[in-house]
Computed example of a mutant assay.
Amino acid sequence: MDARYAFRVRLRIEPAAADVSLEPATFETRCYLDAAEPGEEGWLFFRDFLWRGEVNDRAYAREVFAERIGVPVESVEFAGLHADEAYVAALKEAIAADLEAFKADDVTEVLSKYLGSSVQMER
């Protein structure tokens, strides 16, 4: 199984020396976070971090990515969950086993509620 979350992240580079300037000092890049296997610690990242395919707390997201990347982050946008078929099947199974925790009637509702239409299948 293989899956990772993709984000568009705008970074800001701050030179260490006062006599150095950068142009542009900010740039956008794609950042990937490995997705925990369904049922394992951290697998509910999508539930806690996303809402309708968007980052649900932008300030917190900037803090999380700045810490993980090591440079100041100006913005974070969710770009999708890239996963193979086995991961998506396991994710759906884990969600179905505990629909009450998601306050939803079915798996499709959960996926839409948190990931929007941003699940991209990879082989």
Rank of each mutant, 00 (worst) to 15 (best):
D2V: 06
D2K: 05
D2R: 05
A3S: 09
A3G: 11
A3N: 03
R4E: 00
R4Y: 02
R4A: 03
Y5A: 12
A6D: 10
A6C: 11
F7M: 05
R8G: 14
R8S: 12
V9M: 05
I13M: 12
E14T: 04
E14M: 10
P15S: 02
A16T: 04
A16V: 08
A18E: 14
S21Q: 07
L22K: 01
E23W: 14
E23S: 11
E23D: 04
E23A: 09
P24F: 04
T26K: 11
E28L: 14
E28T: 15
T29C: 13
T29N: 09
R30T: 00
R30I: 04
L33C: 13
D34P: 05
A35S: 12
A36D: 14
A36Q: 14
A36T: 07
E37A: 02
P38E: 10
P38T: 07
G39D: 04
E41N: 09
G42D: 02
G42K: 01
F45D: 02
F46K: 00
F46P: 13
R47L: 01
D48L: 08
L50F: 05
L50T: 02
G53F: 01
G53W: 03
E54N: 09
V55N: 15
V55W: 15
V55S: 15
D57H: 09
A59M: 12
A61Q: 00
E63D: 14
V64R: 15
F65W: 03
F65H: 06
A66M: 10
A66K: 08
E67T: 13
E67D: 05
R68N: 11
R68W: 03
I69T: 04
I69H: 14
G70L: 09
G70H: 12
P72D: 10
V73M: 08
E74D: 10
V76I: 08
V76Y: 11
V76W: 08
E77R: 03
E77F: 03
G80N: 10
L81N: 04
H82W: 07
A83H: 00
A86S: 13
A86R: 13
Y87T: 00
V88H: 14
V88C: 11
A89T: 08
A90W: 04
L91A: 04
L91Q: 00
L91W: 03
L91R: 02
K92N: 11
K92P: 04
E93S: 06
A94V: 04
A96G: 14
A96P: 06
A96K: 09
A97S: 08
A97W: 12
L99T: 00
A101E: 06
A101H: 08
A101S: 10
A101K: 11
A104Y: 00
D105C: 05
V107H: 11
E109G: 14
V110K: 01
V110Y: 07
L111F: 05
K113I: 09
K113E: 15
K113C: 15
Y114S: 00
L115I: 01
G116K: 04
S117C: 11
S118V: 07
S118I: 05
S118W: 07
M121G: 11
E122K: 05
E122T: 00
